[in-house]
Design a protein around this nucleic acid. Structure first.
Lengths: 127, 127
DNA sequence: CTTGACATTTGCCAGTTGGCAAATTATAAT
DNA sequence: ATTATAATTTGCCAACTGGCAAATGTCAAG
């Protein structure tokens, strides 16, 4: 299965690169084969919970953080999301709320500041 | 494959019974086939993260909670949040919630993705 | 340019997941 | 008990996961 907008893989890869690890090294530490790790990074495989748990710690992710990321970023959009009006715009996504509430209010507002900035940039570029 | 001490299945089943749902009804709501749900309940299948996520909401479980129950997660709370009292307010600033909820969920999640990336960069730079 | 040493990707395939439909079992109602 | 109906389980199999080994890509040193 290929995930065309492979956010999860990109995040994993970014973190591996940041930590200066090769696939082989991450494989040694996590016990997951380098080939499989590579396929996860480029969205050719969707890792099982078992694998997610193995790679969470070596990548400095909280386990549940990685699970939540994987769940929400998985290739198949949730039908529930489409059917349930409470999940569409006008409401705050529960996952987003959960993650943000872990941050100090200062950080929360900074995030909003960045969002506003990006929107302004986008607006001015489309004129 | 059979899980001899099938705690997870029992908990899932208990919750389904409590909510007065049949396998068929839970299947309709969650989008997971009744046969598969049945096999999960009696420990003949280990649900993927994808399936876990689908059934969490209809059963009134938080996703992390369900992952923990599934035995994939350690039950330890997040280290960062626990050790640093100034770090988390534990709640979402109302202004932040108001602004973010005006964006599509997709954007909301992208914002979180950016935040995560920035945190990872910061973490690796301070080592 | 070539060699050698790693790093990453690909080919292959055994094992597992999860859906569909048929079979079986439980539950009512007469 | 008998039939009808709903709920659950089983048989089957297409699709996916993840490991191993081979192939390919990358790059620094000679």
């Amino acid at each position: 299965m290929v995930d065309s907008s492979n956010d999860f893989g990109r995040i994993i890869k970014q973190q591996r690169i940041t930590l200066q690890l090769t696939l082989q090294q991450l494989a040694d530490v996590s016990g997951v084969s380098p080939s499989h790790l590579g396929r996860i990074e480029r969205g050719e495989r969707f890792p099982s919970a078992h694998i997610l748990r193995k790679i969470a710690q070596p990548l400095n992710f909280g386990e549940d953080e990685l699970f939540t990321l994987a769940g929400y970023l998985s290739s198949e959009p949730l039908k529930v999301t489409e059917k349930d009006p409470t999940y569409s715009s006008g409401r705050l996504d529960p996952y987003v709320a959960a993650v943000l509430s872990q941050e100090p209010v200062e950080i929360q507002r900074t995030v909003i500041g960045i969002l506003t900035l990006l929107k302004n940039i986008g607006r001015s570029m489309s004129e």
